[in-house]
Structure formats: structure tokens, C-alpha cells
Design a protein around this nucleic acid. Structure first.
Length: 486
RNA sequence: GGCGGCAUGGCCAAGUGGUAAGGCAGAGGAUUGCAAAUCCUUUACCCCCAGUUCGAAUCUGGGUGCCGCCUCCA
């Protein structure tokens, strides 16, 4: 079986073959750290985290590099607004990014270069481009000459002569005058009063956005990498420009596979800062949506397709996750001593036939351009009996305790946990209430007394009040009541 | 105007030639003072038109609708 990925360069599904057998180098476009990350970022980085975990599971040694853009107009604007510095804004948002990603169980990149720490590499690359005649300087700025680069447009499939100049209406006219061609873009911007700047052969200034990624890839991973990742909105101009810069400088292909994730939409429109229709990751998580619910929500759709964010869909994911979590928690909590967490990839040959088949269906789904939706279906099927058992165990079913020692079930639990981990799904502790056990028992006793006196209004009031504090009551035959923190 | 993508049950969403995964919701049953939770069971011919084929959601052509990008963007 071969992993197949949709390569934006060809617009087709291609067999994935790394440059060096067994090794994969990946560069992922990171965030501009002017603000908190929203669900669009979450979706993107969850998708790429799954790609990375899957490659690792398949036995590849993966090197994953992701940048922080910490030199940018938006960061400067933010700093000006709050009377702080570009560095202060950046540092704060980098800390927030790290924390948000950790909550979502996204593996930290192996290396995370920052623009401010890559000035040497950036200047060196611009010098190469200038020496090769691919760049020109004008009034302290340096621009890349798109017409000098033969392949310009190959990623986004664009013919520059067909493009409407300034279709988005955002071009600064004074900058246009310095350019030889409207689509030329800045490699280096001459300093402006009051802005941070760095020394360079072209005078003090700061790097343009596109050049940092080219410089970082070159410095961290070399001229050609296996996979380059990013959001679909980066295809043009960012990735197109990255290709132009890197390939003009090295004469070699920048990346063999370009993968792009679809946007998160709200009411049919792209979630973005500029539209103001965004929900930040932490706002969502702080509102009580669990990280794994968000993960499941994003993985239910294919990574290339747009994903509509609605309260209903999120709620559906939350309920779905509850069931999966019950099965995973059974494994993790060791309710059965026979079930222990899996350590790395299982050996299909050692599995019972039904589990081996499930494992192979999972792998086939993932091999098919990371079809996480189909892969999740396998997880749900694996989870079904475990989830039923977990729920019976929680409710003190005596027979369930015996069933839980069944080795076949243990193997199933182990496989479930292994495959869930490939998707970055891990058991999640449910939110614990603040009441002590004794207090809860007291309330249950009061409710029992009320029920005995047929005062159901009081009984229901007690039940509702406990429910509001996250305590779920389960009435059982014989007038007994169990409770769970949910 | 150019480039790219999408259209599957009430909602989300797999499936790219052989007779529709999975999740949520709904329905029925078990259980309950009533619930909740849980368990079991259950629900679609795939935007429209034409064509290719023994056979199409799946291929071809033509429509319609929606989205992304065309120098802020994951």
C-alpha cells in the first residue's frame, strides 16, 4: 500500500515517495503572531498534525519545521494600538500559540524558526537572487522580478496577463510606482520612521513576507523538501512566490508535494480576522467545548474541503466524541487489567482477523489522501462494544467486570487506542464538579426521601441542581441511584 | 474577466463504474414515578438535463447554485 496525496502542483492524487527512503522533510507555513489563533488555524494544524502522526506511524522519520512570522505590518499596528512593541506582541502571541496547540494535542514542530531570528538567511537569499538577476532594488526596497522567472504561476495555474490588477483593492499606489511589473513583490522593504529595522546591503529595512519562508526552508531543510503545507488561501501569491524565490535561487525544485487545506467557513463564508467572523481556539475551548471534540469536528470532513462551522455540527461532534471517549477511557483507565495502552504500531499479523481487517481499512482510508472521515468510521466501529462495556462498568454492572477481562476485547481496546492516537485523539477526563462525594451522597439521599414521599417536584429539583453542577444521576432498579461526574 | 474547488437522507459527511460508510438528530423497543443516561433495532437511489455503458452518485457534454484565490490571510 502506498500513501497517496493530492499535490496542488499537479492537482492530482500522487503516490508519495520521499526523496530519501524512510525520511520525510516537511515545512508548514505558520502564523503571523499579531493575535490569537482561530478555528481556521486549528483546522489547518490539526490536519497537518494528523499527516505527521500518520507518517510516523507508518515508520517514517519525519522532520517538521514551522515558522512564526514575527515581522509584519499587522504586528506593528497592534503594537502601536496598545503602546507596546512588536516584540512584546509577538512573544505574547507565540506563547498563546504554543498553549493552544498543546491543548489540541498538536505535536510541537521539531524546529520553529522566527523571521526575526532568520535575518542572516533572508539577506543571504536576497543577495543570491540579486546576483542572478531575479531581483532588483528601488529606493531602498528590493523586489522580485516575476517576469524573470519562467515557471511563475505553475502552482496556482495562473497566467499573469489574465489576472485583474488589484482585484482585491488592496494595493498601495506609492509602492506600485517602484515596481517593474504589478505582480513583482517585495523581498526587502526600506525602513520607515518609528519601525524596527535591520541593516542590509540595500540599507536599513525589514524583509517582505514571502522571503522568510524560502529562507527558512533553505536554512533548515535544504534546497528541496518532500512536503510543503499551508492553507488553500496561501496558494497565491504566497506559495507561488516562495517557489519563484527558492527555485530562482537554487535552480532546484522547492517542494515535491504541496498540500493545502480547505477553509473553515461560517455561514458559507471563510472565517477570517478581516471579516471579523472568527472564533478563537481558546474562546471555544473556554466555553466548554473539549479539545478532542474540536479535533473530531475537523477530522470528520476531508482536509481539502471547506468545513462549515455551526453550533449544531459542533454539538454533533461533542456527542460523538463522548461515545468514542468512553471506549478510549476504558482502555486508558484500565477498568480491565487486561487492557493496556498500546506502545507504537501493532503487528497486523498478531491481530485476530477482524481487528486486522479494521486496521487495514483504517490504513487504506488514511493512504487515500488522508481520508480521516472514513478512518473515523473504523474507530467508531471498533469502539462500539467497548463503549457499551464502559458504560455498563460505570454503572456498576457486575457482569461487565467479568467481560472486561476478555482478551479479545483487550486487543480491540489496544488497537482502538493506537489508531485514535494516529489521529491525535486521546482519552479526555470529563470535567469534574466541585462538590465532594459526601455532599453528593447527601443530596441523593434527600432526593430518595422526597421520592419515597412522592414529592417528585422536590426530587426533580435536586436532580436538576446536581445536573447543573455536572453531576448526572442514574436511577437503577430497587430505588438505588448511582451518580457520575459528566 | 482569469484560475481552482464543491453540490449525497432533517444536519454534518465518506464513497469516483457494480447496486449508498460513519457521526448527530429522529422513530421503535428495553429501563424509569416522569426523565436523563445507557443498550438494541431502524430511516437515502445521490442538484437538473442529455449522453457513454449490460450497469453511473461515480465517466462525458451542457446547465444551475455555492465557495476560495487573483499581492492581509491557515
Amino acid at each position: 500500500m502506498t500513501l497517496r496525496l493530492t499535490n496542488t502542483l499537479s492537482r492530482h492524487l500522487e503516490d508519495f515517495r520521499p526523496l530519501e527512503p524512510g525520511k520525510v522533510s516537511i515545512y508548514c507555513c505558520g502564523v503571523t503572531v499579531y493575535d490569537l489563533c482561530h478555528l481556521g488555524h486549528a483546522r489547518s494544524y490539526i490536519a497537518w498534525d494528523v499527516l505527521r502522526r500518520y507518517l510516523i506511524w507508518r515508520g517514517y522519520a519525519v522532520t517538521f519545521v514551522q515558522n512564526y512570522t514575527d515581522i509584519d505590518d499587522k504586528i506593528l499596528n497592534r503594537a502601536a494600538e496598545e503602546g507596546s512593541s512588536m516584540q512584546a506582541v509577538s512573544e505574547r502571541n507565540i506563547d498563546a500559540f504554543v498553549a493552544d496547540m498543546a491543548r489540541l494535542n498538536i505535536l510541537p514542530a521539531d524546529r520553529m524558526p522566527r523571521a526575526t531570528q532568520s535575518l542572516g538567511a533572508i539577506r543571504a537569499l536576497i543577495e543570491v537572487l540579486e546576483a542572478k538577476g531575479a531581483a532588483y532594488s528601488a529606493d531602498g526596497d528590493v523586489y522580485f522580478a516575476v517576469m524573470k522567472h519562467a515557471g511563475y504561476g505553475k502552482l496556482s495555474g495562473r497566467d499573469l496577463s489574465e489576472q485583474q490588477d488589484n482585484a482585491a483593492g488592496r494595493v498601495a499606489t506609492e509602492e506600485e510606482a517602484r515596481k517593474q511589473h504589478p505582480f513583482d513583490f517585495a523581498l526587502w522593504k526600506g525602513t520607515k520612521p518609528g519601525e524596527p529595522s535591520w541593516e542590509s546591503p540595500w540599507g536599513p529595512g525589514r524583509p517582505g513576507w514571502h522571503i522568510e519562508c524560502s529562507a527558512m526552508v533553505r536554512e533548515e531543510l535544504g534546497d528541496t523538501i518532500d512536503i510543503h503545507l499551508g492553507g488553500a488561501d496561501l496558494v497565491f501569491p504566497h506559495h507561488e512566490n516562495e517557489i519563484a524565490q527558492s527555485e530562482a535561487a537554487s535552480g532546484k525544485e522547492l517542494a515535491r508535494y504541496w498540500l493545502h487545506n480547505g477553509m473553515v467557513n461560517v455561514g458559507g463564508q471563510k472565517m477570517s480576522k478581516s471579516l471579523g467572523n472568527f472564533t478563537t481556539i481558546r474562546a471555544l475551548l473556554d466555553s466548554g467545548v473539549s479539545p478532542m471534540t474540536l479535533r473530531l469536528f475537523t477530522l470528520q470532513a476531508h482536509y481539502r474541503k471547506p468545513l462549515d462551522f455551526t453550533a449544531e455540527a459542533l454539538e454533533a461532534a461533542a456527542t460523538g466524541w463522548k461515545g468514542l471517549n468512553a471506549a478510549l477511557s476504558l482502555t486508558a483507565a484500565g477498568c480491565s487489567t487486561a487492557i493496556t495502552p498500546a506502545q507504537g504500531p501493532s503487528d497486523p499479523a498478531a491481530l485476530p482477523p477482524d481487528l486486522a481487517a479494521a486496521r487495514s481499512r483504517f490504513a487504506a482510508a488514511m493512504d487515500d489522501d488522508l481520508n480521516t472521515s472514513a478512518a473515523l468510521a473504523v474507530l467508531f466501529e471498533l469502539a462500539r462494544p467497548l463503549r457499551a462495556l464502559a458504560n455498563r462498568l460505570e454503572r456498576g454492572d457486575g457482569a461487565a467486570a467479568t467481560e472486561a477481562t476478555d482478551p479479545a476485547l483487550a486487543a480491540r481496546g489496544q488497537l482502538l487506542q493506537e489508531l485514535a492516537a494516529v489521529l491525535g485523539l486521546r482519552p479526555e477526563a470529563t470535567a469534574a464538579g466541585t462538590m465532594s462525594d459526601a455532599e453528593i451522597e447527601l443530596q441523593i439521599e434527600a432526593r430518595r426521601a422526597a421520592k419515597a414521599g412522592r414529592d417528585f417536584a422536590t426530587a426533580d429539583r435536586i436532580r436538576d441542581s446536581l445536573k447543573a453542577q455536572g453531576i448526572e444521576l442514574i436511577d437503577k432498579p430497587g430505588g438505588l441511584t448511582d451518580w457520575l461526574r459528566s
